[in-house]
Each structure stands twice: as structure tokens, then as C-alpha cells.
Design a protein around this nucleic acid. Structure first.
Lengths: 122, 122
DNA sequence: CGTTATATATCGGAAGCCGAGATATCATGG
DNA sequence: CCATGATATCTCGGCTTCCGATATATAACG
């Protein structure tokens, strides 16, 4: 699953949303760290629909503008859950490894030959 | 940062490794969930080097076979740390949203009629 | 009337992924 | 002796995905 797809699913996890709403929600939920582009969105939406992870929930007309709402399917919910698990595990692994690398730069069983990472790391 | 790049950095976080070793390490650290392909690896290695996140540490000849070791730079370490943070946050956000969606499928200001997610759908 | 915000969607270039193949050494097995 | 498999490097081409730019349309603000 791509990053974009993950964040779209996340934005839809609590309630159905329309395209433009997903765009804003992703930015907000990621605290501005992730900016889903318009050009990316619709391709992702199509793929997720084709994969059965989301479905068109309903269409509304708000102030003369069409809003097309999507929502997660059971399968989409499960896929997101599994992906979140993998991401958490990956993040956790990276964190503990960083700690290891900082704690023992020369723990490679090599006395000194190895200058260690970036010279002491600080 | 792409998934592939993230896992390469993670594999290098505790100690320098060579290409083939990274391949096995990524699979092991992700418990088989992530399989970095050979065709992907070298492109990632080149990009990470160009971006200054990793550097060629040393070259060794082991049993007649060349081993090219890479290691993280300070910048690479920081980038990995930041990315791990973002991933953890993303995973966490997804998790709590899933909980919200399950807890209140109709929390959309809809008493009960709302079949909500996966409820009635059909 | 022009710009900004909301809202949809498409197009094409660029970036990235990955199966397949090339090359080479060493060990195992037939 | 040769085939196979593991180790180890790297390249190529097709496919998927990303994203800037563009198009269309309504409403609000100046």
C-alpha cells in the first residue's frame, strides 16, 4: 500500500468524506506533514475503489457544488488496520535501531578501524 | 521518503551493511512483511547516497566475493528518526480513527437510521 | 471583473518499483 | 564434471504511481 492510499483510508476511518474534504483532513491529521496532492487523490480513489477498500457512499449538492462522499468497506478497515500495524512495527524497529547505533557505534566487533557512525554522532 | 528508502535506512541504523545483507536484514526486521527487491535496492542506494543520507563505508572481499558496505550519515540518522516519528504518528492516528469509526458508526449526527460503516450497507 | 475558496476531473512528464537477466565465486550433490 | 543454489554485484525495460498544470463550475469578497 502506498503512502497516499494509507492516508486516504485514514481520513475515511472515522466517517465518510468527499475528495476535497479528504485533502484537508489528511493535512490536518498529519499536522501538515503530509500534503496529498489533487492530482494524486483521484487516482488513489479509483484504485482503492477497484480494490474494494472504499465505496461511493453518497452524493450531495452543497451550495451548488457537488460533493461525492466515500467510505471504508470492511475490507478497507481491515487493510488500514493491518497497514497501521506494519507501520507502527516499522517505526518501532527504526527507533530501537537508532538507539542501538548511538549506544554502540563500534559494537560491530571491530575495535576502532571503524570510525563508527558519523564520528560519534554528537 | 519512500517505503524502500525507509527500510534501507532502518537496516543500516545499527551497523554498516552491504547490499545483500540489507536485503536479508529488511526481511528479518520486518518479520517477512517487507521484501525489498534486488531491482529496487541499487536505485535506492544511489538515491540515498546522492541525498547524503548514507555513504560507502568500506569494501571487503569475503570468500572471493566483494562486499560493499554502506552506513548512515548524521543526516541519514536524523532523516530516519524524523520519518519514524511521522510513521508512528500516522499509525497512531489511523488506529484511533478506526476505533472512533467502530465506536460510533452513526456518530455523524444520525441517531440510528444510519447503518454506518459496514452496518447495513447492503 | 478578478481573485480566492470550494469541488470535481484529466493529462503527461517524472520518479520509483520490480521481474528478469548478466556476471562471478564457492559449496553441495549427482 | 556439471547442475544447482546461495552469495554478491549491477543493469535494463515495463509498469505503476506521483504530482504540477490545466480545465470546468459555483459562490463570496473586494
Amino acid at each position: 500500500m502506498t503512502q497516499a492510499a494509507f492516508f486516504v483510508l485514514t481520513a475515511l476511518a472515522d466517517q465518510p468524506r468527499h475528495g476535497y474534504g479528504i485533502l484537508r483532513e489528511v493535512e490536518e491529521v498529519s499536522d501538515g506533514a503530509v500534503q496529498l496532492r489533487v492530482g494524486t487523490l483521484y487516482g488513489v480513489l479509483d484504485r482503492l475503489t477497484a480494490d474494494g477498500l472504499i465505496v461511493l457512499d453518497r452524493e450531495e449538492v452543497h451550495e451548488g457544488r457537488l460533493r461525492r462522499y466515500y467510505r471504508l468497506t470492511d475490507e478497507g478497515m481491515r487493510a488500514l488496520d493491518a497497514e497501521a500495524e506494519r507501520m507502527a512495527a516499522g517505526a518501532s524497529a527504526a527507533k530501537s535501531r537508532i538507539a542501538e547505533g548511538r549506544k554502540a557505534p563500534g559494537a560491530v566487533a571491530k575495535p576502532s578501524a571503524g570510525p563508527g557512525l558519523a564520528g560519534g554522532v554528537a
